[in-house]
Amino acid sequence: MSDPFLLTPGPLTTSATVKQAMLRDWGSRDGAFIAMNARVRERLAGLAGAGETHVAVPLQGSGTFAVEAMIGTLVPRSGKLLVLVNGAYGHRMARMAAVMGRAVAILEVPEDRPVDPAALDRALAADTALSHVAVVHCETTSGILNPVAEVAGIVAAHGRALLIDSMSAFGALPVDARTVPFTALAASSNKCLEGVPGMGFVIVRRDALAAAGGNAHSLSLDLHDQARGFEANAQWRFTPPTHVLAAFSQALDEHAAEGGVEGRGARYAGNCRILVEGMRTLGFQTLLPDALQAPIIVTFRMPRDPAFAFQAFYDRLRERGFVIYPGKLTVADSFRIGCIGRLGLAEMRAALDAVRATLAEMGVSSGAP
């Protein structure tokens, strides 16, 4: 069987040319590899409109490694982090801060609602000990898009530092440091930029990074030390993910050729529209209204038809060449289908055909919850 299409939040379906970029071995001290690393770092900062004020610091590991490095390096031991929570990834950031011994508070809303800027404003006014705020750009627990620009304005007005987990948004949904002030933003190679897993990165203000020496709770997750290594000799402190970086460099070329953030975001929006319209014709109901839905991953409520069993649905779709994702909600029984990766309208229509055929095979008359 050929590789299935991954309708998941990542890892994702990648292009043949991204895969082919991994067929060469690279020496970590080789001049060509060092130059490629420098180009990738420069391009990442540029994608965030941050080339003048921020620096991109790549890090071995998944995106979670990058988020933990961001919190551990930038929130000092005397600081206090406020995490805006409306899903599992906000809770994960709060847990990270607690594990590393940082003071942390959470401001939580249900998973099907965006974070609340007005409540944030009140919280920052009430607690002057809060030094940093963390928010998830697109919370893939539900697929909801959080109002990051509004959050950034409030945090800046209070003179605090903003940390953004943009893991599932960066590269497809705009975030520009010139209009959305942030101290740091974390993302990874294998989401909307359509590389392969194995490398995270943090785009961080130069002044904040310079002031962060000695903060980190971990040697390997110390962004300040990692950045100093790049500045000293343009090399990684520890063994770099050479093949992952080569694939990522190719993925960035393809991202630019597609029209950058605007072009990539437009394709994903088209995928999302086709998916939602098609699933609704089969009776399925989305968790979120269209106004709150990011074009990244869509949460559907489970059908009430007694013939529907998610594991059988999942397995039969996999046999037809499409991998979806289980739900992660507490507010509703659900499953998720992603819109990102090297997929277009033809693949989304084929996925809908597979859903239709699977429901018929299972004897499910409607996807209605």
Rank of each mutant, 00 (worst) to 15 (best):
M100N: 01
M70A: 03
M93N: 05
F65S: 03
L145K: 14
V99F: 11
G79D: 14
L130T: 15
T128W: 07
L124W: 06
P58I: 10
R102V: 06
G79N: 03
V109C: 03
G63K: 10
L120E: 01
L107C: 10
C138H: 13
G101L: 12
T141D: 12
K80D: 08
G101D: 15
I106A: 07
T73I: 02
G87V: 06
A88W: 14
A129K: 13
V83C: 12
D121F: 05
V109E: 09
R113K: 08
L74P: 07
L120N: 06
S131N: 07
S131C: 06
A105G: 09
V83N: 11
G87L: 11
V115A: 08
E139T: 09
A123K: 14
P110Q: 07
L120T: 11
N146H: 13
Y89D: 14
A98D: 14
T73Q: 02
R95I: 04
P117C: 02
T128M: 10
T141C: 06
G72C: 12
R102T: 03
S62C: 05
N146P: 13
A125I: 05
S131T: 15
H91A: 13
A134E: 09
L124A: 09
L145C: 04
L120D: 01
V136G: 03
P147R: 12
N86P: 10
L59S: 03
E108D: 13
G79C: 04
V109A: 02
L74M: 06
V135L: 01
A103Q: 15
G87D: 10
P147V: 08
G101W: 12
P114Y: 05
R102Y: 12
Q60V: 14
D127F: 05
V115L: 04
A105W: 02
A103F: 05
A88D: 15
L74R: 10
T128S: 13
L81T: 06
M70G: 08
V85Q: 03
N86T: 08
D112V: 04
S62H: 14
V104Q: 05
L124Y: 03
H137C: 00
E139W: 08
G61Y: 10
V109Q: 00
T141M: 03
R95A: 14
V85G: 03
D112M: 03
V109S: 00
R122T: 01
A118Q: 11
G72H: 10
V115I: 14
K80F: 00
A69C: 04
R113P: 08
H54V: 07
D121T: 01
R122D: 10
N146K: 13
T64C: 05
L120G: 02
R77A: 07
H91E: 15
A69V: 06
R95T: 14
I71D: 06
